[in-house]
Design a binder for these strands. Structure first.
Ligand SMILES: [Zn+2]
Ligand SMILES: [Zn+2]
Ligand SMILES: [Zn+2]
Ligand SMILES: [Zn+2]
Lengths: 149, 149
DNA sequence: CTGATTATGAAATTCATTTTCATCATATCC
DNA sequence: GGATATGATGAAAATGAATTTCATAATCAG
């Protein structure tokens, strides 16, 4: 973790940026946070340790992390974006419309079929998004319709 | 086409709505438009035959069509939504980041594997979105980097 | 027709995100 | 260590798509 932050700082310096205390807090909190956080959630978390930090800095820092390849932008159609760390391997998402739970999955076969599709159309893929919306086991069973966010 | 509009009007009446000239124009233009239109594009088209119609009515009419199951909302991450007719069978999209071209595809195998994934997690799917972003054949070849929208 | 209710357009509002700008912090050079 | 240049910050303003409000117009049932 410390090592990661140092590495990121080095990359920022290498690209003409400067270190900053605020940014360090945001980055630290981001990697410790549960995945798929909104800016608003992350800002709340950041302010627990550094109340002065503004949401704008959180926005900017996540854009920066995305540019460097450490964060990924998500959009589950909720109106606000979410971000997740890009350190773990690629995966797609099951999103529960009742309780908001997000289940990650990875399916080699689906990915391969996607490659086939693009090849068939002479299309050069750079990214894709696959999200399945519905109801998680708990919410579908109707026994405990939770609402976590 | 005429038949379709009449059918929609009947459904609107059945659910306590009223017919309206403006809405008829919007619906007609929507089904004649190329697929994956933005509200802005559709509004421009609508105004060719009825200059007085406001964008708000286009927004409202598409929400209505979506509620009735005749339209589908899309989001290719451009900031503005797009809509497509829901009369054709389900398909997913290849989206060119250079020229904006959208290629539709349908892959039974991928759909089946998605079902498998959800079943494996006890998840009850109601919808999904699969979009592959990249460069279409033309743009990837570098010979004619077009920009259509 | 009459009255009741829905639809409309313009303007106002909302809300996430981005931009602006004056100020602060950090790196670099002496 | 200090001076200087430049990046980073936060508050406020701006942006832009989408929604809501509200007075007015259109449509429907009786
Ligand atoms: Zn759930
Ligand atoms: Zn994830
Ligand atoms: Zn293209
Ligand atoms: Zn389509």
């Amino acid at each position: 973790m410390k090592r990661l932050l140092e590495r990121i700082d080095r990359e920022i310096l290498a690209t003409g940026g400067k270190r900053s205390r605020s940014r360090a807090v945001v980055i630290d909190r981001f990697f410790r946070a549960r995945d798929h956080v909104t800016i608003e959630e992350l800002t709340r978390s950041v302010r627990e340790s550094a109340p002065g930090i503004g949401a704008v800095t959180v926005y900017r820092t996540l854009k920066l992390l995305e540019r460097l390849g450490y964060a990924k932008e998500l959009d589950f159609g909720e109106g606000a974006r979410r971000y997740e760390s890009n350190l773990s391997p690629h995966h797609d998402h099951l999103v529960c419309r009742q309780c908001g739970t997000v289940i990650e999955f990875e399916d080699r076969e689906i990915e391969q079929l996607q490659d086939l599709v693009t090849r068939r159309h002479g299309f050069h893929p750079t990214a894709h998004r696959l999200e399945i919306y519905g109801f998680c086991r708990k919410c579908a069973s109707g026994t405990s319709p939770e609402r976590s966010r």
